Amino acid sequence: MVAKKLVTVVGATGAQGGSVVDYLLKNKSQEYAIRAPTRSPQSAAAKALSARGVEVVRAELTDVAALKAAFAGSYAIFAVTNFWGLFSETQKQSPGEKDVSLLANKAAAIETQIGMNMVDAAVATDTLQHYLLSTLADAYTISGGRSQPPHYESKAKVTRYIHSKPELLAKTTFVWCSYYATNFAGLAQPIHVPAIGQYIQIQVTPSDQPIACIGDTRANFGTFVEAALAQPDKTRGGQTVFAFVERTTLGGLLQIWAEAHHVKATYVQISRDTFFSTWTMEAQEFTLGMEFWDMVREKEWTGKDNFITYSDLGIDITASKSVRDSFEELEI
């Protein structure tokens, strides 16, 4: 009997990592065994993974030694970091702090260190053949220094760190996950205005800004990682997989959402100063990323023309959950 290839999935209880686990568990070849490092092995989410046959191990992402132990024996590793969770924790630790840049940069520094910790642990994993890192574009470099959102730069620093390690870079696939449908239930949630009988979505960037969307992250993201893992000769060596299921504009996305919920909605662009003086810190930081997308719109925010998409990977996109169907599942 051929031994299964061990894939260690960081963030297995989250949207991206959870989707990777889902797809690897239902992989037709049944060639993978899955390990999930977590800080809370006794949590309900971790126990649910264990019940599905996933090996759950305890590991703090801030502890390189624990990560090395968690990665030991891995054929492949999927790694993801969570800026928004760290940003929330940073705000809780600094009550009353109003400087969004200060807090965002603190969270970004922690995210970068966690990313580098995982890289160091991966380098020490002598069985490793494939390292898949969920990351984002290098906004600062692509924009010529005009844009540097902390939640982009924190990941870009880890990408550069991998580029400084040729042996790991040769085994690495970078994966960019596009716009989440769930943003419409949080950072970009339309607001109902009873006086006009419809919803409005307030943004800083224009409605014709191009956007690529993953839709339901949990339903769709994992297929890209599974396909990349199955085609290492195509995806390793520092190649980038751009995970999306549909392209549209910000205004078009709002109309898809409105149609999904059988309501009327209007896109409202306001000044940057007005938005930043009234909206939450999370929305302000998120908007920095949106401004970057608008700045390099002709490059579809990727800044490169040789990324790998679903067509290159042979993914049947019609089998994915559409953006409209993804929006239908969100409460309004």
Rank of each mutant, 00 (worst) to 15 (best):
V7N: 00
T8N: 08
V9K: 00
G11M: 10
A12Y: 01
V20C: 08
V21M: 11
D22E: 13
L24N: 00
N27M: 08
Y32H: 07
Y32K: 05
I34T: 00
A44I: 15
L49Y: 04
S50K: 12
A51R: 08
R58N: 12
A59M: 12
D63E: 05
L67Q: 05
S74R: 01
A76K: 04
W84D: 06
E89V: 13
E89A: 14
E89Y: 02
A108V: 08
Q113D: 13
V123K: 12
D126L: 11
L132E: 08
L133S: 14
P149L: 10
K157C: 06
T159F: 11
I162C: 07
H163F: 09
K165R: 15
P166H: 07
P166V: 13
A170V: 06
T172G: 07
F174N: 02
C177A: 13
Y179R: 13
I191E: 15
I202H: 04
T205W: 08
T205H: 04
Q209P: 00
A219H: 06
F221K: 01
L229S: 02
A230H: 01
A230W: 01
K234F: 10
G237S: 06
G237L: 10
G251H: 03
G252S: 12
L253S: 04
E259Y: 05
A260F: 01
T266Q: 14
R272F: 10
W279A: 12
M281A: 15
E282G: 15
W293V: 08
M295F: 14
T302Q: 15
T302S: 11
Y310F: 15
G314C: 10
